[in-house]
Simulated assay, not measured.
Amino acid sequence: MIDTHVHFWNFDPVRDNWISDDMKIIRKDFSPENLTDPYNQLHITGCIAVQASQSEDENHFLLKLAAQNEIIKGIVGWVDLLNPNLDERLNYWQNHKIIKGWRHVLQAENRDFMLNPAFIAGVKQLKKYNYTYDLLCYHNQLEAIIQMVDQIPNQPFVLDHCGKPDVKSQDLKTWTENIKTLAANPNVQCKVSGLLAEADWQNWTEKELFNCFDVIFEAFGPERVMYGSDWPVMLISRPYEDWFNLVTKYTARFSEAERKLIFTDNAKAFYGV
Rank of each mutant, 00 (worst) to 15 (best):
H43M: 07
H43Y: 09
H43V: 03
H43A: 13
I44R: 06
I44E: 09
I44V: 14
I44W: 08
T45S: 15
T45G: 15
T45P: 06
T45R: 15
T45Y: 13
T45I: 14
G46E: 10
G46P: 12
G46I: 11
G46D: 12
G46A: 11
G46Y: 10
G46N: 13
C47H: 06
C47V: 08
C47E: 05
C47S: 11
C47G: 04
C47R: 07
C47T: 15
I48V: 15
I48Q: 05
I48P: 07
I48N: 03
I48C: 10
A49W: 03
A49M: 05
A49E: 09
A49Q: 12
A49Y: 05
A49S: 15
V50C: 08
V50T: 13
V50F: 12
Q51K: 13
Q51E: 15
Q51D: 13
Q51H: 13
Q51C: 10
Q51Y: 11
A52V: 14
A52K: 07
A52N: 13
A52H: 11
A52Y: 09
A52G: 14
S53N: 11
S53A: 11
S53C: 07
S53T: 11
S53D: 12
S53R: 12
Q54V: 01
Q54N: 09
Q54R: 04
Q54H: 08
Q54S: 12
Q54Y: 06
Q54C: 08
Q54L: 09
S55T: 15
S55Y: 01
S55C: 11
S55I: 05
S55W: 04
E56F: 03
E56W: 07
E56C: 08
D57Q: 12
D57R: 03
D57A: 10
D57V: 01
E58D: 14
E58P: 11
E58H: 06
N59Y: 01
N59S: 09
N59E: 07
N59H: 03
N59I: 03
H60A: 13
H60D: 14
F61T: 05
F61I: 02
F61N: 05
L62K: 01
L63M: 06
L63Q: 02
L63C: 03
L63E: 05
L63Y: 04
K64G: 02
K64P: 00
K64H: 09
K64C: 01
K64R: 08
K64S: 09
K64F: 00
L65E: 03
L65N: 02
L65Y: 01
L65F: 04
L65W: 04
L65K: 02
A66M: 06
A66L: 04
A66S: 14
A66G: 08
A67N: 13
A67V: 00
A67G: 13
A67Y: 00
Q68Y: 00
Q68I: 00
Q68M: 07
Q68P: 00
Q68W: 00
Q68D: 15
N69C: 06
N69F: 06
N69H: 15
N69A: 05
N69R: 06
E70G: 14
E70A: 14
E70H: 12
E70V: 00
E70C: 04
E70T: 10
E70D: 15
I71M: 04
I71F: 01
I71G: 07
I71K: 04
I72D: 04
I72K: 04
K73P: 03
K73V: 04
K73W: 02
K73T: 01
K73Q: 12
